[in-house]
């Protein structure tokens, strides 16, 4: 039995139950005049239906494979988490200190994370950030976010 199907199925059930309840709040309307909740309501009901089928399949296949063994173990999943974390921090820094500064920091962190030495990492991040900034600002005329320092 693949436990992952149960977890994902439960998530979908919760998700669609929330949508279905909110849809009723939006108003489902009648066929002559379907309202805003019409589409989300029926879609979430379909999701619930298919979740139940997925559960049925999973239980019927009790003896089957337990899923990929390597999905969490045997990997450095903290690396992906760190990268995602760095991007989260970046999101908040970007509007404050502008593209050039924020992205330099992000790239430095990412290069470090993929085990580069500090020196080439610093060089590489400065280079990529300045090049991308130049490309967008001067050739493509698309302004990248400026921070409080004006760049």
């Amino acid at each position: 039995m693949d436990k992952r199907n149960l977890i994902s199925g439960l998530f979908f059930l919760g998700f669609s139950a929330f949508v279905a309840v909110s849809s009723i709040g939006l108003g489902i309307g009648r066929l002559t005049n379907p309202q805003a909740g019409f589409m989300p309501f029926w879609t979430s009901l379909l999701i619930i239906l298919f979740c139940l089928i997925l559960f049925g399949q999973t239980f019927a296949n009790r003896s089957g494979s337990a899923g990929r063994a390597d999905s969490w173990s045997q990997v450095h999943w903290h690396k992906s988490m760190l990268a995602a974390g760095a991007l989260c921090v970046y999101m908040f820094l970007l509007p404050e200190i502008g593209y050039l500064a924020a992205t330099s920091i992000l790239m430095l962190a990412l290069f470090k994370l993929s085990s580069m030495k500090i020196l080439p990492a610093a060089l590489a991040s400065l280079l990529t950030v300045i090049l991308s900034y130049a490309l967008f600002s001067f050739i493509l005329n698309t302004p990248l976010p400026r921070g409080m320092l004006g760049f």
């Binding site: 990268a83 995602a84 991007l87 989260c88 970046y90 999101m91 970007l94 509007p95 992205t103 992000l106 790239m107 990412l110 290069f111 994370l113 993929s114 085990s115 580069m116 590489a124 991040s125 990529t128 991308s132 967008f136 493509l140 698309t142 302004p143 990248l144 976010p145």
Partner: peptide, 30 residues
């Protein structure tokens, strides 16, 4: 890889941003 992956991330975030010039879209992408 150690150079390529960070570059791909940069590419992704520039791509997400430049659709609507919106930092919010970077968040959506993330």
């Amino acid at each position: 890889d150690k150079i390529l992956y960070p570059l791909i991330v940069l590419f992704c975030l520039l791509g997400a941003y430049s659709v609507h010039n919106s930092v919010f879209d970077i968040g959506v992408m993330l």
